[in-house]
Design a protein around this nucleic acid. Structure first.
Lengths: 222, 222, 222, 222
DNA sequence: TATGAATGAGGATTCATTCAT
DNA sequence: CATGAATGAATCCTCATTCAT
């Protein structure tokens, strides 16, 4: 990771990504598959070149360095995950019939699961490199909390004032939700991508019920 | 990962670990630090040798391969995490005044947090390599579910029959708990090892309360 | 020797040998000299690289492994020694005025001596590695007996029926000839490459006379 | 090969070999087996140590260097092959009922075959290293021609004057015999140690007949 | 005498990167 | 724009040898 400002990198990347050659697309597609499967560090540029049926030089002609290829893979995904989430996702989510926090949660989860499903491999890359690559982690973490965190906090505050949520500090609620939802995404899409205990609808319901009520048997009269 | 049977590796490792030279200890200590910091794939044996003030050959005299060094670091940790957890941990946890599921959870969390705190860096290595290294993942996963899973399921069943837990299948309760507790350990000890929002006691309480009750405001009269 | 089927290796090699870079030629030339001089096991790739004024990586870019470099050196030689000998050599030899077995022998020896002289160093490599490298030996031996052996046996049979050759089993005649001719080639081109007791013509005559008549003084009236 | 004078080495070795520890014997025995099987260059001292159930240091305590271990293996064999052959072997051979050159040849072959059979593995080592190791070759060759060569030449001369042998220069007869007998020993004990076309007696007869008469059918009335 | 831990130079091989075509 | 030959530093690993015990 030589680019130390993720935002700059995103902007630069946006400019670059105007015209993509066939070869470029092939390279990125192949890199995504291989990074996801074996990890960035265990994938050599020559392997990528071979699999993409491209000369090794071509990779470097377009992306300069292997690090930069990783960014070119990750950034478009992040752009849709991080800054815009504050706008698009929340707008879309809120546009539905969101009457209670559970509805909000359901809409949010569905929206993000759909997104990750479409970008499953890149999600795997991001998660793996996020843990493995300290630089990347240090760059991404602030963005997460600043963008998604802020927006979610507002939502939580709203529903708390409606008396729907437990009366503990927002950032703690936030962290509890993150921990569980993050853990859920990781186990569902990275650790055990082929196992599913039930159909998706039921799985989401179970998750939401857990977030809202935990696993304690509710007293009958509740 | 050339050793394909984790159990065999553990046994072999137990035999080997008779006498450890000073240099061996230095090597393992250094390897732990560096693997935890930069990941296995990004740490070269020559770096380790230099940092441990040891000839590179010495590493290979004792551990044969870099893979094997990783195992020598991980296995003793796993031995205390996996098979024995079925006995020791549960025995210890149960020996406390465990009257309800919350008490059980509290005892379990405290026990495991203490263990991870003592082996923080190895835990980081295990988590990172668990995600990054498919072979390792494929070897560890079965052990996890077979040992910890089975035991926990029994406990869950016990408390469910006492009417303390929600009436959904055991394996789903198990997975919900794993997801949250796993996510908690990872975020607490790997992602954000320096940040703590509150003191540990309170943190555990919050976590347990979340697992049991979620974040919904309980109806007054409940 | 990772390639376990010599025939496959030959075919693969034939395909590869399309375009040879300058550097590639330099590498092979240098490798031939050094392998012949010091033996494969005693020649390091870095030595070869230095002597060939090439980066060590270049060797591996083209030949992948040191083993494969050895094959790339040996195979073209073997291709001309083994399978084709059945056709080309015998055809050429037979096309001469071959009226008796001695004529045949003379033509064969001349032909093969010329070939070995042109590839003296590779012949030295083959002989040395043939003895030193069990795998190579196991791969080559069958080819030898199947190709050259079969053809020679036919010739022997032909002349035996004309009453020119002693009446013992063909395979024994074959082995006696092999032993002497092989020993002759090895001592002439590998062991004592600089010593020659007489001019070549005379040497061949002596050898043939020995093969035909041994060293016993023929009875006058014979 | 650091010792450049084989004779000195033999003398030094003779002095050393007074007291041999158990461990020393084990080391030499093991080294012989492994050198014969895989060649000197492909056998590591640690392998030998392990197989001989001896600490690696022990090898060097007794033999100083790996090269020297090779000499310690080879020299006793050579001592019995080279200088003494001039005396013992010829004495023994001549003591039999040696009436003609064929008898002499038969006695010589039997004697040497018995010797090689008893030291088959060392013979394999000597042959392989003789070809592979230029220094060794340069040291051994003179001894061969000076000792065995001289003695055999005398014998040849004797029988030639009796009119038993063909009338060509002695050194040429010598070389023809060497080529065939050497080739025979190598193919019989190194290349194809498990294959034998006939029983030994017959094999020797065939060889002698070939040396004496070649493969030409003798004219009936001869 | 015997050990085996320790060494460090050297071995084969990989890999990101450059550059002439 | 695309190629792929060439590079050489770096990687994991081997090995003969030394030395304190």
């Amino acid at each position: 990771m030589s680019k130390h400002n993720l935002l700059d990198a995103m902007i630069a990347q946006a400019k670059l990504s105007k015209k993509q050659t066939n070869k470029q697309q092939k390279i990125v597609e192949t890199a995504i598959k291989m990074f996801a499967e074996k990890g960035y560090a265990n994938t050599s540029t020559s392997e990528i070149a071979k699999a993409a049926q491209v000369a090794e030089g071509t990779i470097f002609r377009h992306y300069g360095t292997k690090d930069n290829l990783l960014l070119s893979v990750i950034l478009p995904f992040l752009k849709e995950s991080l800054p815009t989430i504050a706008e698009e996702v929340f707008t879309e989510v809120m546009s539905k019939n969101v009457v209670c926090f559970e509805d909000f949660l359901r809409a949010l989860l569905k929206n993000r699961i759909a997104f990750i499903k479409e970008n499953k491999e890149i999600f795997q890359i991001v998660i793996k490199e996020f843990l493995y690559n300290e630089n990347l982690r240090n760059e991404l973490l602030p963005y997460f909390s600043e963008t998604i965190g802020h927006r979610l906090t507002k939502v939580i505050e709203t529903y708390k004032q409606r008396g729907e949520l437990v009366d503990i500090p927002n950032n703690i609620i936030l962290r509890l939700m993150f921990t569980f939802i993050g853990g859920y995404f990781v186990s569902r899409f990275v650790l055990l991508p082929e196992i599913s205990l039930m159909d998706e609808e039921a799985e989401i319901d179970t998750a939401i019920h857990f977030i809202m009520n935990g696993i304690k048997k509710q007293s009958q009269g509740g």
